[in-house]
Amino acid sequence: MMLHTINKSPFERNALQSCLRLAKKGHAVLLIEDGVYGAFQGTAVAAQIAERMADMKFYVLQPDIDARGLGESPLIDGITPVDYGGFVDLVAEYEATQAWL
């Protein structure tokens, strides 16, 4: 099983879309850096994540949310916030990591 990291805003680049197209059922996605802009309810990309929510796990790096002034914005249902320690735990939990740069 693989952990996919995405650090691009889905409104500027296609890393999230490509990852969702090419990641397998049972894999996990962690949104970091500008990738966190894809984690919130009510955006144009929320439905794309919701569509994979049943067969993949989604995480978002809280320090990057806080840095961007989005700490009060509601996350898409099912996305779990993690800190850097949680990021480490995810890398350890999944057998490989793929960065969608």
């Binding site: 650090n7 970091i32 850096e33 790096l61 800190d83 850097y84 320690g85 480490v88 890398v91 350890a92």
Partner: peptide, 19 residues
């Protein structure tokens, strides 16, 4: 780019967890 900052925070957190 933020990449090196994130890598640094990740590395620090991994060491703190005993990895």
């Amino acid at each position: 780019h933020q990449a090196s900052d994130t890598a640094y925070q990740f590395t620090k957190a991994a060491l703190e967890k005993g990895h």
